[in-house]
Design a protein around this nucleic acid. Structure first.
Length: 116
DNA sequence: GGTTTGACCATAA
DNA sequence: CTTATGGCCAAAC
């Protein structure tokens, strides 16, 4: 079903993309934005997830390009996110995630981390 | 309909 | 390694 390709807002699109991320993998805000066709909207991805209340999506699988958890002051969110990722098999190096291994690539016809 | 803000990213120092 | 700055675009006020 068309799955509502067109949504009343930009957020809906973000949730749709984030839902495509399988368990055990993570992605970055920039990649989600790029998957939509505009890598400049990376900020809105995080903003959309912050506004996510009625919708459901694995927001914890979305991190910044530095492989770190963004919390903008709210450390509580970072703690929860880290716990959720570790529960899915994501390994943390200090406060960072190994994007080289867990970064999911949208449209992964050949799986994550295409080429190398 | 203009201003402010924001869970970012890339580059520079 | 970290911190600072510019830019980009959509939603909220």
């Amino acid at each position: 079903m068309a799955a509502r390709v067109v949504s009343p807002g930009f957020h809906r699109r973000v949730y749709t993309v984030v839902r495509t991320v399988p368990e055990g993998y993570v992605t970055t805000y920039g990649d989600v934005a790029a998957a939509m066709g505009s890598p400049r909207v990376a900020r809105h991805v995080g903003w959309a997830l912050a506004a996510m209340k009625d919708e459901e999506a694995p927001w914890h699988r979305v991190i910044n390009a530095q492989g770190r958890i963004s919390h903008r002051g709210d450390t509580g969110r970072a703690t929860l996110q880290r716990a959720l990722l570790e529960a899915e098999g994501i390994e943390f190096k200090g406060d960072r995630v190994d994007l080289k291994r867990f970064r999911w690539w949208f449209g992964g016809d050949r799986g994550p981390n295409p080429g190398s």
